[in-house]
């Protein structure tokens, strides 16, 4: 677990979705809000994302998806997170185009903050500060 004084966030783009405007805006806003931000870049498999989270020893994983593949990909990521015994220590949040009906399903598998179009970056930063799983 990270001992850094700063919150460490991995922002990831799972699957083939190339919409990266939102994730880049959030990355910059969280960095401006004082967090350490690592961005995976595009086209990452669930396995590659979990591996990066482990290597980078992050407090938070932020998943961005605008292609409608979130249920399949986020579910796989959460399975891998549990397999690697990282679920206890890691806050997972998500953003993008997530239909309302899918929000409770994602919450049930452990994704706690889901931010759609129009969400303010301050709201996201505050949510992360309030919900990370270690005390700074």
């Amino acid at each position: 677990m990270s001992t850094s004084q700063k919150i460490r966030v991995l922002l990831a783009k799972p699957g083939l979705d190339g919409h990266d405007r939102g994730v880049k805006v959030v990355a910059r806003a969280l960095r401006d809000a004082g967090m350490e931000v690592i961005y995976t870049g595009l086209h990452k498999s669930p396995e590659a994302i979990i591996e990066a989270a482990l290597q980078e020893d992050v407090d938070v994983i932020g998943l961005s998806s605008l292609s409608g593949s979130h249920m399949a990909l986020f579910t796989r990521i959460m399975e891998l997170l549990a397999e690697k015994e990282m679920a206890e220590d890691t806050l997972v949040v998500a953003g993008g185009i997530i239909p309302d009906d899918d929000v409770p399903k994602l919450e049930k598998i452990g994704i706690k903050g889901i931010f759609g179009p129009g969400a303010e970056t301050d709201t996201i930063a505050n949510f992360i500060r309030a919900n990370i799983k270690r005390t700074l």
């Binding site: 699957g15 083939l16 979705d17 498999s45 292609s67 409608g68 593949s69 979130h70 399949a72 990909l73």
Partner: peptide, 20 residues
């Protein structure tokens, strides 16, 4: 997306993307 990236619908990276 799999077509845009030149992948078959059955490729592992196409998970969740088919027809979306």
């Amino acid at each position: 997306l799999p077509t845009l990236y030149g992948r078959e619908s059955t490729h592992p990276m196409s998970l969740g993307e088919v027809g979306k």
